[in-house]
């Protein structure tokens, strides 16, 4: 279950951040999930209750923003969505590309009350 491990790690990262900011309760988390991160948004949502169980974020809502997987073909320069074109350049067929966006899993906002 990849998503549960990812969320456990995220809870630790946030724990450190909120300690530094002197915050005690977190109302909502806004997370950006890249389409090329290998992480499935739906599974993240399903795993959240288990990952937050008995932590300081048990009551915290999880909001996900999906970031499209945008790449640039290194052979012809075309910029396209890698997911829809099955990792091949729609113009020249090359699979040598540079990822421009959508590779990461980022904590965007922590909404505190």
């Amino acid at each position: 279950m990849h998503e549960l491990g990812v969320l456990n790690s995220m809870v630790h990262t946030i724990e450190r951040i909120v300690k530094e900011q002197n915050v005690t309760a977190v109302h909502k988390l806004v997370i950006e999930v890249g389409e090329l991160s290998g992480i499935v948004p739906r599974y993240l949502e399903q795993s959240w209750p288990a990952a937050s169980y008995k932590t300081f974020m048990e009551e915290t809502k999880l909001e996900l923003i999906v970031i499209p997987g945008i790449v640039k073909c290194k052979d012809c320069g075309r910029v396209f969505n890698a997911v829809y074109s099955d990792l091949n350049c729609p113009d020249c067929g090359s699979n040598d590309m540079e990822i421009l966006e959508g590779n990461d899993l980022m904590i965007k906002e922590i909404v505190c009350n």
Binding site: T13, E15, Q21, V23, M106, N113
Partner: peptide, 18 residues
């Protein structure tokens, strides 16, 4: 209305592990 404080952080989920 509740008063929310928003921390805009843009940190990788894996930051702590790294």
């Amino acid at each position: 209305m509740e008063d929310f404080k928003i921390l805009e952080i843009k940190t990788s989920v894996f930051a702590d592990n790294s």
